[in-house]
Design a protein around this nucleic acid. Structure first.
Lengths: 346, 346
DNA sequence: TTGAAAGCGCTAACAT
DNA sequence: ATGTTAGCGCTTTCAA
């Protein structure tokens, strides 16, 4: 392995100064004679020169890198968000450092630190930490932070949100319009605002139709985020909670789940118990992950524009990095009802 | 936003040289008096000092970053591989730059370049490019490359593979053992060695049992990788190809799919056509993605240890980076049959 | 045990 | 249009 070739090697080869080489090779707008330009480019190619970004970065203080901190990339929801982020980043010449916090506040904090140390221009985070002090501390040090899919209470944090409440409302309303009056909500712990907001929308829709939420309709998992074990957690959650629903004297005819994975668990258990979906019980999911259209029965669900969320977040981040004027400091993406085959008229 | 604090600020504050500060704050083994050590650490904390890794990197030529190039993170298969990679990287203080090639050779090439420019210590790649010259070129420049899940013909590229042929064999054998004699293989284009290897295992199992592969049993998609549109492609592929199977005069009683997503497409279409799985036709998938256990019927499939593949790849890469002795330059992970409910006796 | 100073590869202000 | 040189923040050799 030969030593890496630097602009000094090229300067020597063409017999010009490093400044001229730098001007040509970094596409500076500074004028250089076409003749030299050609020779320098030729020499660079000849010698197999590749710029050392670390050197450039130290000088320009621009790492052209953004950090992304999410709970886990194995969650198809986040995978799509990240895909959207990376797409926009790439188009602007940026790279993405991917960090899975694994639902651990400690890991999240550690990543926040090391990303800052690596001079990322900004980070996009879906924080699972209850404590936002550390984030605020880094913001005060100049770090640009975009929060996705959940609220950080700091005027300097720009947010890309999603109207979960309306999503919960739309889903519940749809069930009611289809003749359902006994509707349950099955959810992972509501310590995450998103899940609680879905509940609020659900409540509102019930209220609006004069339906009183019955004891037992709300099934909330007791487990903590900590106990997440990949996506199997959500699935198992659905399976376990729906059993309690079946035990009720007056069974619901429809179930709203806090996400598609949970809905799959619910359907799975119902199938196992000999209850037909949607004939006997309708099930509606949340998020519209790609797989929700691939299962049988395909999932009626609420679409969450994941790719767009990623794109929005990254565009916003890049605008802030480049100190462009920011139109909106908070974007709330809108839910959309996707009607498929896991729901039917009652 | 205040200017970032550097070791100079601390040196000034404590009235020592930057050398001493550096020694303390970079955890150098170089001796510094406990007294000074304490004072320097206190000042660093007081001033909110955080090291600038770019400066360190330029000096030490160590970016503590690895690059990962995969087709798409939205594919749950790769998501899990990446999760494994990141887990190991983090434990060694490394970060992961995530690059989605989107099945585009051009994008893959671009990423290879920019990762090299960013001084990554090495990359883990699942290359979709037919041309491996560029990779070889960078290897000759000293880049360390680990190839996952497919072969790069270069003695300097270490590989983490998977025995697809045996997987295909195991799956087919299982079907035969369950009384099936008419078994089809439905696959995305076999330009990817993995898919072709599954086919070879399938052939071998048939041959071993004296079954002649009938015209029409092999259903290979005509579409190119280029046309991938997320995972929906695989799914649609399964749906479309299985129709041709149903058109056959002598329908197969079992179908092997090149991956789980394709199997889901197959099952979906069969359901739509009123064919019961597994009662009328058995379907077996490949990969054992998390979702294969969540669907109804749950998928009989071949397990591919995705997380482990990521971990192995990253451990190998780190060993190479640290020029540790490498025991094996090629690791072939083994398939495992997972029996669930999409297959039955014929 | 501490400090001075060179230098990693690059850019950019300044000089010519 | 081209060259000289300082310096980004850090580590490390060498000298004290």
């Amino acid at each position: 392995m030969e030593k890496r070739v630097t602009i000094y090697d090229i300067a020597k080869a063409v017999d010009v100064s490093v400044a001229t080489v730098s001007r040509v090779l970094s596409n500076s707008s500074y004028p250089v004679s076409p003749e030299l330009k050609r020779k320098i480019k030729a020499a660079a190619k000849e010698l197999g020169y590749r710029p050392n970004m670390i050197g450039r970065q130290l000088k320009t203080n621009n790492s052209m890198t953004i950090g992304v901190i999410i709970p886990s990339i194995s969650n198809p929801f986040y995978a799509n968000v990240v895909l959207g982020i990376e797409e926009i980043a790439r188009r602007s010449g940026y790279h993405v450092l991917l960090c899975n916090s694994q639902h651990s506040p400690e890991l999240e904090a550690e990543y926040l630190q090391t990303l800052f140390d690596k001079q990322v221009k900004g980070i996009i985070i879906s924080s699972i930490s209850e404590q936002k002090d550390l984030i605020n501390e880094y913001i005060s040090k100049g770090l640009i932070v975009i929060s996705i899919d959940q609220t950080i209470d700091n005027p300097d944090v720009y947010q890309i949100g999603f109207d979960y409440k309306k999503g919960g409302y739309l889903a519940t309303k749809y069930l009611i319009e289809n003749g359902h009056r006994k509707i349950a909500y099955v959810t992972a712990p509501m310590n995450r605002p998103s899940r609680h907001d879905i509940f609020k929308g659900y409540q509102e829709a019930l209220l609006e139709s004069g339906i009183t939420l019955q004891e037992g309709w709300l099934q909330e998992s007791a487990l903590d985020d900590i106990e997440y074990q990949g996506n199997a957690y959500e699935f198992r959650n659905g399976r376990e909670l729906v059993r309690k629903l079946l035990d009720l004297d007056d069974r619901p005819t429809a179930i709203l789940a806090c996400n598609d994975l949970t809905a799959l668990g619910i359907i799975n258990e119902l199938h196992f118990q000999g209850v037909e979906v949607p004939n006997q019980i309708s099930v509606i999911g949340f998020d519209n992950i790609e797989l929700s259209q691939m299962v049988v029965p395909s999932l009626t669900t609420i679409d969450h524009p994941k790719l767009e969320m990623g794109r929005f977040a990254c565009n916003l981040l890049l605008d802030m990095v480049n100190s462009k004027p920011i139109a909106l400091k908070e974007i709330i993406l809108q839910p959309k009802l996707i009607i498929r085959n896991s729901t039917s008229r009652n």
